[in-house]
Design a protein around this nucleic acid. Structure first.
Lengths: 98, 98
DNA sequence: ATGTCATATGAACATCAAATCATATGAATA
DNA sequence: TATTCATATGATTTGATGTTCATATGACAT
């Protein structure tokens, strides 16, 4: 089992910043600036994170004027999020608040 | 979204050693010694990895004489592995061999 | 063409997790 | 209870990953 891209994929779900972004994009597609505002993180952090997410096809982007709009690739992510929720219910106790 | 246990959970899937162990245990429950042999990794590495996996309820263990047998918590993991496979097919190209 | 807004990139640094190594615990058996 | 086999644990080193900051690119408007 040595699929680099595969491990990169899950590293995104192991990272608070990236899951914050995923959660935000679950609501609606957003530009980088919108994201930085809604999750209150620095622009370059967000851009770096989005780059990783894009490489793993977790998000897609399209140019719109001088902005770039990022969308969640729901096809792959939504089923995973469901399992996350289930697992959280089963095994995540009081220390959780998301 | 600040669930520590949740991110710990996915860190396991982001780690080659731990996914190797998961893949091995998919076949059948095994002792630590069996695992170290089948995946050819050091005992303490395997033990440390198993501890993490256990904390996240990805594996369970039961004592059997002086050995300890580890089993995969298939209820949670199998659906995730299915999504992994699908994602691999969709987005993982030639650089993958697992 | 220049300026401005939006985003991306690179390199240096900081942080955290994994590997390592030595040792401890625990169970069984003589 | 001393010994051996099996596994776990702790401390340290190492290595990878995220953060930061400064700067570059790119698109649009003037």
């Amino acid at each position: 089992m040595t699929c680099k891209a595969y491990h990169l994929f899950f590293r995104n779900l192991a990272n608070p910043l990236k899951t914050k972004i995923i959660a935000e994009l679950k609501g609606k597609p957003q530009t980088v600036t919108q994201l930085t505002q809604s999750i209150k993180e620095e622009q370059s952090k967000v851009s770096h994170a989005l780059m990783n997410l894009r490489h793993c096809s977790i998000v897609t982007s399209k140019q719109k004027g001088k902005e770039r709009v990022y969308s969640l690739n729901k096809k792959t992510i939504v089923p995973i999020l469901k399992i996350i929720d289930k697992h959280r219910k089963d095994y995540c106790k009081q220390e959780c608040n998301f």
